[in-house]
Simulated assay, not measured.
Amino acid sequence: MGAEISPKAPTSVADALPSNWVDRWAPAAWRPYLRIGRFDRPIGSWLLLFPCWWSQALAQMNSGDHYPDPFYLLLFAIGAMAMRASGCAYNDYVDRDIDARVQRTQSRPLPSGQISPQAALAFVVIMALIGLAVLINFNSFTIWLAISSLVIVAVYPFAKRITAYPQIVLGLAFNWGALVGWAAIKGSLGLPALALYAGCVFWTVGYDTIYAHQDREDDALLGLGSTALRFGDDTVSFVGGMYALAGVMWIIAGALAGAHLVYFLAVVLVFLQMSWQVATLDINDPMNCLWRFKSNRDVGFALLAGLAADMALSWFAGLS
């Protein structure tokens, strides 16, 4: 899986921060693979991980546990990083010709020639096997539930070629962890997990619409679909609607799981953060879009903190 980087090959990826750890510290031979796995841009791993952690915490709160199981939190963290890397490399393999024609993605390892398509596929398999090694620590229902998501993951890269709403397909694939986390604790699915999953899908459609505005001109020239193109100047209203639906579904999920006031206060805080994104969004400024997209990590931590605080306060209340 070795790669030789030519003197003319990009020394970084266009949408990665110049100070990222891959460009600064990783051995040169590793960098193309770390870049194709997006290890230089960890926001996607966070956004994939949070639905897993939320769902796990929601299920354990419903079961009366006092804190989220640290071992499961670790398993989900490793699995999210591995599967995000595998999925991104697969997406880049499918999109390698398109990426070569889009300014923001021309510097990625495949279109820039840093690694071969065959090496990229080998990386996809290796990362997927790491994900499988994590998955076998869960119950059999969870294993098969997680494996079933691969159908949507495989379809996603082709969605923008046939629909104006590829963000919906991304949302369905990217938030499968909202089902898996609950199943890992309960051994089955439940209405709280389904409501959480629906909210996460709306959330993803919203933040990925913001992200897609960075590429809307190239996408239009290439005949590709996106909600950024579909809604254009109405993006602010559309994203606001998606975020509002996400908040409502997360409230329903908490109510169904028996959450208490602190969790619902966390949802309110999350909604205020998402409202800031919408109120300050400038779809004509790529950097503005990128930073509002990345700020969704704050959403993830706030909701997780609300779930953890709910569990802890319930424990203390039971001691008094």
Score class of each variant (00 low, 15 high):
residue 43 I to W: 08
residue 37 G to F: 09
residue 109 P to A: 10
residue 242 M to L: 10
residue 90 Y to L: 13
residue 289 C to M: 03
residue 55 S to N: 01
residue 314 S to T: 01
residue 124 V to M: 07
residue 167 Q to R: 09
residue 209 T to C: 11
residue 223 G to E: 14
residue 288 N to D: 09
residue 226 S to R: 11
residue 135 L to F: 06
residue 280 T to N: 12
residue 196 L to R: 11
residue 140 S to Y: 13
residue 220 A to G: 04
residue 183 A to F: 05
residue 262 V to Y: 09
residue 288 N to Y: 05
residue 104 R to V: 08
residue 18 P to G: 03
residue 255 A to S: 12
residue 156 Y to M: 05
residue 69 D to V: 09
residue 206 G to S: 10
residue 257 A to C: 09
residue 43 I to S: 11
residue 262 V to M: 11
residue 99 D to C: 11
residue 305 A to M: 11
residue 197 Y to Q: 07
residue 103 Q to R: 13
residue 122 A to P: 04
residue 249 M to P: 01
residue 239 V to H: 12
residue 307 L to K: 02
residue 119 A to L: 03
residue 205 V to E: 03
residue 90 Y to N: 02
residue 289 C to E: 05
residue 143 I to W: 06
residue 33 Y to T: 08
residue 182 W to C: 03
residue 126 I to D: 01
residue 217 E to T: 15
residue 80 A to R: 09
residue 276 W to K: 08
residue 22 V to A: 05
residue 213 H to C: 13
residue 211 Y to A: 09
residue 289 C to I: 05
residue 7 P to L: 05
residue 290 L to F: 14
residue 304 L to H: 09
residue 217 E to D: 15
residue 152 I to R: 00
residue 43 I to G: 06
residue 313 L to N: 05
residue 237 S to V: 14
residue 28 A to K: 12
residue 151 V to C: 01
residue 214 Q to C: 05
residue 296 N to W: 10
residue 133 A to D: 15
residue 102 V to G: 06
residue 220 A to I: 11
residue 68 P to I: 04
residue 266 A to Y: 05
residue 119 A to T: 02
residue 302 A to T: 14
residue 273 Q to C: 07
residue 11 T to K: 07
residue 286 P to I: 02
residue 101 R to T: 09
residue 13 V to K: 12
residue 150 L to N: 02
residue 294 K to Y: 04
residue 57 A to R: 08
residue 212 A to N: 12
residue 254 G to F: 01
residue 37 G to M: 14
residue 269 L to W: 07
residue 196 L to S: 04
residue 4 E to D: 04
residue 30 W to P: 00
residue 221 L to P: 08
residue 25 W to C: 06
residue 206 G to V: 10
residue 73 L to S: 10
residue 275 S to F: 11
residue 150 L to E: 00
residue 234 D to C: 12
residue 29 A to P: 00
residue 182 W to M: 05
residue 281 L to R: 11
residue 250 W to Y: 12
residue 259 A to R: 01
residue 269 L to A: 14
residue 193 A to M: 03
residue 150 L to F: 12
residue 244 A to G: 06
residue 232 G to S: 11
residue 133 A to L: 15
residue 274 M to G: 04
residue 106 Q to G: 15
residue 101 R to G: 01
residue 90 Y to H: 05
residue 211 Y to L: 09
residue 48 L to E: 02
residue 285 D to I: 06
